[in-house]
Design a binder for these strands. Structure first.
Lengths: 183, 183
DNA sequence: ACGGTAGGAGAACGCTCGTTCTCGCGTCAA
DNA sequence: TTGACGCGAGAACGAGCGTTCTCCTACCGT
C-alpha cells in the first residue's frame, strides 16, 4: 500500500469515527483498526493525533463546501440559489448518520484546548459566510442580509444536530424566504 | 462546612471550570482544588463525575432561563419582549469569559457518548423554545414564527461562541425585527 | 478523659490512550 | 546469497484521571 492510499484510508476512518463518536473518544488504535493502516504508518503520516484531526477537518471542509456549491449551482436563478442552500441543508440533515455540524461539535469538544482546531473552525465558518455573501451579492441583495441568513443556517445546523430532526431545515428556509421577501 | 454549602461550592467550581475549559479536560482533582471540597466529600455528594456534570447543567439551566425571563419581563410591550430576548443575548455575548452556549458545547463534547447529557441539552433547548413560543403567543403572532426566532437565537449563540464577537446578537435582532415586521 | 466517628489530605489503584519500541518477516540491490 | 531496510503486529511506556483507600486529626457525647 503506497503512502497516498494509506493516507486516504486513514482519513476515511478518521472522518467516520471522529464525526460519529467525537474526537476524544476515538483512539489512534481505533483509527488503525478501522483503516488497516498500522500505527507506525499513521505516525509517519501524521506525527500526532492533533494533525490527523486537522487533516480530517480540512478535507471535510473542502468536500462539504464543494458539495454545497455543486448543489446550489444547479439552480439558475440567483435569488433561488440562496434558498437552495437551505434545501441542501435539509437534505444533509436527513442523511443517515447525521450528527450535526462537524465544526460546531469539534469546537465544543476542543475549542477551549486547541488553538489549531479553533482556527480551523473559524476558517470554515468564515468561508461558508463568504460563500453566502457571494450569493447575496449575485442576487443584487443588500449585504446586511448575509449575516442574517448565515445565522439561520447555523441555527438550523445546531438544532438539527441536537434534536436529530430535519424540520429545522424547513423552518430556516421559511425564515430565509421571509427575509428575502422583506427586502 | 455543611453539606449544602459544600454542594454549592462544588457546583460553583464545576460551573467555572466546565464552562471555561470544557468538561473532559477538567478532572475531579481540579474541582477539589477550586472548590476546597475534599474528594471524599465530592463523591458523597456526587457519586460519579457524570452526576456532577448533570447537576452543573441543571443548575445553570435554571439560572440562565431565570435571568433571561427577568430581563425580558422589564419590557411591558409584548412584541418588544421578543426583541428583548436578543438584547439579552447580545449582553450575554459581551460578558467577560463568554465561551458560547454551555449546552451546545456540552453536546459537542459528550452528546455522542452520554445519553443523560444529550437529554439535558434537549430539555434545555426545548424549554427555551417553549419560552419563545409563549412570547410569540402573548404578542398575538402566529406560532410559525417561534421556530424561526429560535433558529436565529441558536445561530447567534453558536456564532458568538465561535467567533467571540457579540455582533451576532445585533444581527439576530435585526433579522428578528424583519420577521416580526413581515407578519 | 476517652472511644467512636466524620472528615481532610493525599497516596494508591486501575484503566485508557498517545506515543514509541521491539521483533520478526519479506523485499530488493549488489 | 546476503545484508540492509521497510513495514506490520503488538507489546511497552508514561501520563492523566476517575475512583477508592489509608491514615491521621478533630470533634462529639458520655
Amino acid at each position: 500500500m503506497d503512502s497516498a492510499t494509506a493516507r486516504d484510508q486513514a482519513l476515511d476512518a478518521a472522518e467516520t469515527l471522529f464525526y460519529g463518536r467525537g474526537i476524544q473518544s476515538v483512539g489512534m488504535d481505533d483509527i488503525r483498526g478501522a483503516s488497516g493502516v498500522s500505527l507506525k504508518r499513521l505516525y509517519q503520516l501524521f506525527p500526532a493525533k492533533e494533525q490527523l484531526v486537522e487533516a480530517y477537518l480540512e478535507r471535510r471542509d473542502v468536500r462539504w463546501r464543494g458539495e454545497l456549491a455543486a448543489y446550489v449551482e444547479r439552480e439558475p436563478d440567483a435569488e433561488r440559489r440562496i434558498l437552495a442552500v437551505f434545501d441542501w441543508l435539509q437534505e444533509w440533515f436527513g442523511e443517515e448518520g447525521f450528527r450535526g455540524c462537524a465544526w460546531i461539535n469539534s469546537y465544543g469538544e476542543l475549542g477551549a484546548r486547541s488553538e489549531r482546531v479553533t482556527g480551523q473552525v473559524r476558517a470554515h465558518k468564515a468561508a461558508f459566510r463568504e460563500y453566502l455573501a457571494g450569493l447575496v451579492a449575485d442576487a443584487g441583495l443588500p449585504d446586511a442580509l448575509t449575516g442574517q441568513l448565515y445565522l439561520l443556517a447555523e441555527g438550523a445546523m445546531v438544532t438539527a444536530g441536537i434534536t436529530g430532526d430535519a424540520r429545522a431545515g424547513a423552518e430556516a428556509r421559511e425564515a430565509a424566504r421571509s427575509l428575502l421577501a422583506a427586502r
